Simulated scan of single mutants.
Amino acid sequence: MALLNDEQVMLRDMAREWADNESPTTAFRKLRDAAPAKGFDPEAWNTIGQMGWAGILIPEEFGGSAFGYLSLGLVVEQLGRNLAVSPLSSTAVAASAIATGTSDAAKSDWLGKLASGEAVATLAIDEGPLHTGVDNLQTTVSGSSLSGAKKFVAEGDGADVFVVAAADGLYVVAKGEGVTVHTRRMADSRSHADVTFTNAPAEKLGGPELSRAIVDRATAVTTAEMLGMAENAFSQTLDYLKQRVQFGQVLSTFQALQHRMAKMKTEIELMRSAVEGALEAIDANRSDVDQAVSLAKAVANDTLRLVSREMVQLHGGVGMTDEYDAGLYLKRSAVLETMWGNASYHRDRFARLNGY
């Protein structure tokens, strides 16, 4: 478990309080049923911008706080607990790519707007249904024009600017000329657009090394959301077992169910260690960031898969109904497990990085 400073503790607690009071799962249900074109609540996003969370990875000279990835992870974890719909993760990591890149024009044009929440950004990386990293990409750039098709772009429906991986590196492309967004409907009721770029004006941020680094950072932030989901799915299941009576006894008194809950709790603690370890590795700019990230994603995939499915099982028949939250966590889990690579992909990557 990471050792947090006073600022990080305050940030985490503030995010938890806001998520519980302003963005519970009832807010997710309301947004799901309304199905807004952008895929999120602009008013809630504006509040997040005012609280400074969108600028956590942005340098102070551009209006951010430069608190680092562990701090961002703490906020994303708290939002993930309640399935809060927000473009925070995608915007923050895309902003980090712009801040790290070599384009002063892109920094000047976008970082201030992203830090304040005035604009939304996202990453456009994958070109097929499976994550294969940034190698063998078909997206190309001729002069200053970028062309290619990206699949399953998170928050793509409401993004104002895209950070796009091409064959020779990472580019920033503004929504508008040469950009076509096609909405996809997926199980988790979140925005996952397909985006086509046709001779879209592009500004280069860096080479393939930057692309790989940003994908690792996006992966680590995703595991933070998964950690929050696992924590709350476990808590809701435990609460249910403590009040549900069967055969004249409270379910939590059954030893077999106690063993299942104990296993989940242990796995979640291991998951926290791996997730926070990856975020700390990024902040420390360690040489083994790629290994730490793959370890975190593999563990997060396995753990959230276990907890979300046990949540449905241990709720019994009502766990299959929309009245309870179990199905919402199960659906979001299924999407996040595949985002940025499934467990098999990251186990294989971890082995290769270690020379196996």
Score class of each variant (00 low, 15 high):
D216C: 04
G316E: 08
S103W: 02
F152K: 12
S211L: 01
A34G: 01
M10G: 12
H259R: 10
S308F: 11
T139E: 00
G143F: 01
A230Y: 02
L111Y: 12
E7H: 13
D325C: 07
D126K: 13
S90R: 00
S116I: 12
W110F: 13
G101Y: 06
G176K: 06
V76G: 01
Y240A: 07
G73D: 15
Y329N: 13
I56A: 09
A19E: 03
E225W: 08
F28L: 14
G80W: 07
A94R: 13
T303S: 06
D216P: 01
N301G: 11
L88G: 04
D126V: 04
S235F: 04
G55C: 06
L11G: 09
I268V: 15
E60L: 04
G206M: 02
A106G: 11
A106P: 06
A284N: 15
Q246L: 14
T223E: 03
L4S: 09
S144E: 12
A213S: 10
A166N: 03
G133V: 02
V179F: 03
T198E: 15
G52D: 05
M320S: 06
P59K: 07
R260N: 02
G112Y: 01
S86V: 05
A326S: 14
A296N: 09
A218W: 10
G133L: 02
E310G: 13
A44H: 13
L257G: 05
H182V: 10
V293G: 11
S96G: 06
A292F: 06
T219S: 13
S287A: 15
R260F: 01
N46V: 04
L241Q: 14
S344V: 07
A165W: 00
R32L: 03
A193S: 13
K331Q: 15
T139L: 07
P129F: 05
L111D: 12
A220Y: 08
H315C: 03
V75F: 03
L137C: 01
V289S: 02
L111E: 05
H182D: 11
L146I: 13
K113R: 13
I282G: 02
A27D: 07
R347E: 15
L295I: 14
D302L: 12
D104N: 15
K297C: 03
A165D: 00
T222A: 12
E231M: 08
P201G: 10
D325E: 15
I268M: 13
S86H: 01
A15V: 04
R32Q: 07
S189I: 00
D109R: 15
V245N: 12
K175L: 02
R32I: 01
V134A: 00
P201T: 09
G158D: 12
T91V: 05
G55A: 11
D160E: 08
T223P: 03
M311S: 14
R29I: 13
R185P: 00
T253Y: 12
W340P: 00
M14W: 07
